[in-house]
Design a protein around this nucleic acid. Sequence first.
DNA 1: CTCACATACTCAACTTGTTGACTAGGTCGG
DNA 2: CCGACCTAGTCAACAAGTTGAGTATGTGAG
Lengths: 189, 189
Amino acid sequence: MSLRNAVLAALLDGAASGYDLAKAFDASVANFWMCTPQQLYRELDRMESDGLITARTVEQERRPNKRLFSLTPSGLEALAQFTAAEHKPTAIRDELLVAVLAADTNVEAVKASLRERKQWAEAKIARYERLRLRMLDGRTEEEFLVGAERVGPYLTLLRGLSFERDNVRWCARCLTVLERRGARLDAPT
Amino acid sequence: MSLRNAVLAALLDGAASGYDLAKAFDASVANFWMCTPQQLYRELDRMESDGLITARTVEQERRPNKRLFSLTPSGLEALAQFTAAEHKPTAIRDELLVAVLAADTNVEAVKASLRERKQWAEAKIARYERLRLRMLDGRTEEEFLVGAERVGPYLTLLRGLSFERDNVRWCARCLTVLERRGARLDAPT
DNA sequence: CTCACATACTCAACTTGTTGACTAGGTCGG
DNA sequence: CCGACCTAGTCAACAAGTTGAGTATGTGAG
């Protein structure tokens, strides 16, 4: 029931089609809530029939028609209710962690996964940094944080950034540890 | 299909009953994979019928009988296959992030959630630190990492630790930002 | 001219994860 | 000796998330 709230929050940026959202998610909410287009369309239908959003069909000349969704007052209220509620802490839920937990049985494979993940995280950091600069749009962070109408998207972006940086550090740490142990185990053959 | 792998990895520590696992998870895998007892029992049944684990019924004198599960060779192999596979990166999936994304519509409520989460994370850090010291058992980290038979559990614990530390820092940052904006908005009434 | 790719979706089936209530014996405090 | 809590589970129902395939139109590259 929380994809719903992510969608409500995403629509604060203005109306969007399901297709837009599926892609926009990638650039705003994706740090903390990924989903497939199918999930979105299904949820959007339900939200519409619950009166949280309204759809306006936009006829397009050289493309299929699309349905632009926007928040209704009742949707805004639902969002307010959600933000006011308690939020259970979450765990990380990452397969790589499970693999590292079992690392001692299959060291080389896990090292490969760690290297791959480290690279992936570095690429993501670079993307996030570009996004951040675009949000700041010339202002310093200070100026932005005091002056902008909305800071929510920036703050969540910061969380995504620090999460990936942490991933990079941790992968590097695991790799040196496993490396050193490998050396130890190989040496006295 | 990944709770399954978490269970396999947890059983590397030795045989355990469903009940044990449900609680042990809390102290080892919980950083990154939480679940309710029901999920565990269901999964254990399936894993048993898939031949990945075997159950040995232990009659107890003053308690209900329990079934002790342990890895079979085929379970070990499944685990090795899993560690060798690719692991998709995950997002954070935290309701609090959704709330912060929408923070600008309901600042006070979100600030309360941030304060609460910060405290919770600090408590978790304290617990993890105690666990860490118990694992080290007098050794320095260096000694442990080179000498221990298994380092997987320690490495995942480190990830849990740094995740929560990061949470604390981020909550603090969000709070000061929202605080300052609140001051700005209230001042010129 | 054709084939791949982008827009904008829909349908169906499946696997995971969550919630709540229930059984049944034993232990400990007041 | 009564009620609360701990061990060690089971059952049923539901909510959420994932996967894969299919539709229809238009654009651009070779």
